[in-house]
């Protein structure tokens, strides 16, 4: 009890201190100088109308690629832990908590929804440089669609090894796509078309990159989903 009171006092002090420190920020609306530059020159330099995508896929592409790599490592870790025999099972799942059977109407509706979810995911990915969206967001939608297909009995294939291999290959493709510009423009991790080409052509690089990131993220998240479903069975 005294410990919790001390903790509350400490956090209260930290809260008040942070509040007084950030109070001047509440009514001002700051803007980073980088953001201002991107707003003014982003389209000419990267050919992306979505300026968030311009930062993600061109200015800091190096970071984005290894951010996708973190997801790859996480999926590999989940895969390794979920089937590792190093963990014995002295306390298996309680028997009385049986999995409830899915209702037929849910299965029927998810069968109808599945192709539309795939279509929506690909739309978000391909138009990531023109409208809100991009590879990461569309990849999550694709993985959710895949999760529905796991629940549809006829389509259920729960083998995650090919997906893991696909994810590794896609990550290598991403790295090599980022490195093409080293040979065409002399600088790694940027658009491989030079700045004088028509922006409609330079868009191709962003669409390709978004597609690769989207497929990679969706396969990684699908591995995580399927392993969790298997763990519950």
């Amino acid at each position: 009890m005294i410990k919790k009171l001390m903790l509350l006092l400490m956090f209260g002090f930290i809260f008040l201190y942070a509040l007084t420190a950030t109070a001047p920020l509440a009514d001002s609306f700051p803007e980073t100088s980088i953001g201002e530059t991107v707003i003014h020159r982003g389209y000419d330099e990267t050919a992306s109308k979505n300026l968030v995508a311009a930062i993600l896929l061109d200015y800091r592409l190096f970071d984005s690629i290894f951010e996708a790599g973190i997801l790859l490592i996480s999926a590999a870790g989940v895969l390794y832990m979920s089937r590792s025999s190093g963990f014995s099972k002295p306390f298996p799942r309680a028997k009385e908590a049986a999995v409830p059977k899915d209702s037929d109407s849910i299965l029927a509706v998810s069968r109808i929804l599945y192709p539309f979810m795939l279509l929506f995911g690909f739309y978000i990915i391909v138009f990531g440089d023109l409208s809100p969206g991009g590879g990461f967001q569309g990849g999550v939608i694709l993985a959710t669609a895949r999760l529905i297909s796991v629940y549809i009995p006829e389509k259920a294939s729960e083998n995650t090894d090919p997906l893991n291999r696909l994810e590794k290959i896609l990550f290598l493709c991403l790295l090599s796509l980022g490195l093409i510009s080293l040979f065409t423009r002399g600088a790694p991790f940027t658009n491989f078309f030079s700045g004088s080409v028509d922006p409609e052509f330079r868009r191709l690089f962003l669409v390709l990159l978004n597609l690769l990131i989207g497929l990679k993220v969706s396969s990684g998240l699908t591995i995580i989903f399927i392993r969790f479903i298997k763990e519950g069975k």
Binding site: G35, I39, I55, L71, A75, F136
Partner: peptide, 20 residues
Amino acid sequence: DPLPQALMITTIVIGASVTA
């Protein structure tokens, strides 16, 4: 400003990985 939004995408992706 697009910069904080681009940074926060990274935070979301890494948060999802860590949670999984």
